[in-house]
Design a protein around this nucleic acid. Structure first.
Length: 250
DNA sequence: ACCTATGTTGATAC
DNA sequence: GGTATCAACATAGG
């Protein structure tokens, strides 16, 4: 489920449960998830180091260590962070840190689209969707002929908005996902920014993007939770998209 | 059984 | 450079 709200919860979990603990050993044998590192590379870089802080920008997350390089963690499509969960479900652990105190931190990910990397490169990542200022948002989002939804899901434009959060925010802003990004007025861009921030904050508070108002209606035959109009469905920006043709006119 | 769907990113082609 | 498409992975459901 990982979009920005889920990643923030994972970051907070690490912050509250894993900081101050020291790495005893590391399982980094999954060369797909840990690419381009060879097995043992991450282990030798962080063994003996202590976790000191946990950070996030958009869907990217990283941990800073005293005595080692920063460790980047990405949840991909189906990943989650498991702290001290050594009992069950370990068959999906693609990467795992064992702490000196006997506990652990794992990236648990069925689909293996998650990622673990040393010294993560954040240079191509736009500002966080929940933090970006009004002027910068207007500049970055309000340009080009690309579909509006594709623009806000582009992580180099702003980071953190995925498929579900995009549909929810566009619905809240009353904007069609098909609009050309460059066609929006400043007022529409400001409203969109407000909607993204509101949808994101609410999802963090309530436990994930699935707690949105539109999300439960994103299925064939679904109707707008506000006006009851049957939702439109199409592929936009390569992803399945639902919107209300009445409240989000093109 | 077979086909399609899925929250991610990145490489590639036009 | 901007935009569109497909591939990578693995599972679930019609």
């Amino acid at each position: 489920m990982p979009e920005l709200p889920e990643v923030e919860r994972a970051r907070a979990l690490i912050e509250s449960r894993a900081l101050g603990r020291t790495v005893a050993s590391v399982e980094d044998a999954d060369t797909w998830v840990c690419r381009p590192h060879a097995p043992g590379e991450i282990a030798s870089a962080i063994e003996g180091a202590t976790l000191v802080s946990a950070h996030r920008r958009g869907k990217a997350m990283w941990v800073e260590l005293e005595g080692g390089p920063p460790l980047g963690l990405h949840l991909g499509m189906t990943g989650r962070i498991a702290v001290d969960e050594d009992g069950t479900g370990g068959q999906w652990d693609r990467f795992k840190i064992h702490f000196e105190d006997g506990g652990s931190l794992a990236l648990r990910d069925k689909r293996r689209l998650g990622r673990v990397v040393l010294d993560p490169d954040l240079s191509r990542l736009g500002p966080d969707a929940a933090e970006v200022g009004r002027a910068e948002f207007r500049d970055r989002v309000g340009r080009g002929s690309i579909a509006l939804k594709a623009r806000i899901m582009d992580q180099s434009t702003i980071s953190g908005v995925g498929n579900l959060l995009a549909d929810e925010a566009l619905w809240r802003a009353g904007l069609s996902p098909l609009r050309e990004a460059g066609s929006l007025s400043e007022a529409e861009l400001d409203e969109l920014r407000r909607a993204i921030r509101a949808a994101t904050r609410r999802a963090i508070r309530r436990g994930g993007v699935h707690t949105g108002d539109l999300i439960p209606h994103r299925e064939r035959g679904g109707t707008c939770p506000s006006c009851g109009t049957p939702l439109e469905r199409a592929t936009v920006g390569g992803r399945t998209t639902f919107w209300c043709p009445r409240d989000q006119p093109g």
